[in-house]
């Protein structure tokens, strides 16, 4: 294969990775921004989204798209409920102390991951995309001529991948509208700005925290549902999204939603491209070291206003 098509392929992979990553990392960023805690179990919510998508798709009778659509609604809802319960039972009781929360969410990570292993098993299972990828072929008009003909087999998956990118972009936009334009967002920002004053003004801070935690987890779960037709559902699949979300949130600047999205596109694209041309392991080594040095020398990240 020539360099051009290769790069195209890498760019599409990168764009899909970036889109899903933006969604997942936005959840982590929201939780950190409002609650000032790091949720180490975030990747497991992503994994649960994918695994629940498999379960729902199998329970719902009828065509594949019906099951998938049901999963797209049910999986984030269930994961959100679970997260709200975890917030209520665990995080609230350690009073959102940053260090104790990290330790507790590490525990939560293992509980969710290992419970999934018990209930779902160690197999990786595929979930069919809601429509046969060959139906939609917007591809030939998209790329420069000649490239398309090089790999006709790539067209099928591409259709669903474009849907993933569009859906993720739409959801990211929705989150921005929610946080910056809606009343609920105003309440969240007030809580983020000053917890005690917000409480004094009658904002139910405990409920805001539970809902924020649920929303963050649900965003990760949607990421999992979107990605599962491309990448099979497996109980260990939460590790990479967690690591990459961490990287993105830190490089973007802790607590800055805009920074998170910019960094997700940056990291997702470059991770996709470096992974295709070099080795995925090398890409991850570089990214983890980048995070460490950003935290050490520029703790406010790209857009953050304060240090971690």
């Amino acid at each position: 294969m020539d360099f051009g098509p290769h790069l195209m392929l890498a760019a599409i992979e990168g764009a899909v990775a970036a889109a899903v990553l933006a969604l997942t990392a936005l959840g982590l960023s929201l939780v950190f921004g409002v609650m000032r805690v790091v949720n180490v179990a975030h990747g497991e919510f992503f994994m649960l989204g994918a695994v629940l998508a498999w379960a729902v798709a199998h329970l719902v009778p009828g065509p594949a798209w019906a099951g998938y659509l049901a999963a797209l609604v049910l999986a984030p809802l269930l994961v959100g409920l679970l997260a709200a319960a975890a917030d209520w039972v665990v995080l609230k009781r350690v009073q959102y102390d940053p260090e104790r929360t990290i330790v507790a969410t590490i525990g939560l990570l293992y509980i969710l991951q290992q419970a999934t292993l018990m209930a779902y098993g160690p197999e990786a299972r595929p979930v069919a995309a809601p429509f046969d990828a060959r139906i939609a072929l917007p591809w030939p008009e998209w790329g420069p001529e000649g490239l398309v003909l090089t790999w006709p087999w790539g067209l099928g998956t591409t259709a669903w991948k474009l849907v993933v990118i569009a859906a993720a972009a739409l959801l990211v936009a929705l989150v921005f509208v929610l946080v910056q334009r809606s009343r609920a967002g105003l309440v969240m920002r007030a809580t983020q700005f000053d917890r005690e004053t917000a409480q004094a003004f009658g904002i139910p801070v405990a409920r805001v925290f539970a809902l924020t935690f649920a929303l963050g987890a649900a965003l990760a779960a949607i990421g999992g549902v979107l990605v599962v037709p491309i990448q099979q559902a497996h109980y260990l699949m939460g590790g990479d999204p967690l690591l990459l979300s961490f990287i993105v949130v830190i490089i973007g600047g802790l607590g800055s939603l805009r920074g998170t999205v910019v960094a997700a596109i940056l990291i997702g694209m470059s991770d996709g491209i470096v992974s295709v041309f070099f080795s995925p392991t090398l890409a991850k080594i570089l990214a983890t070291l980048l995070v460490a040095f950003v935290l050490i020398f520029r703790p406010q990240g790209l857009y953050g206003t304060r240090a971690a």
Partner: peptide
């Protein structure tokens, strides 16, 4: 590792 996770949460709490 479920046990490890559960113990972590319980000890923290």
């Amino acid at each position: 590792m479920l046990v490890a996770g559960a113990v972590l949460v319980l000890v923290t709490l």
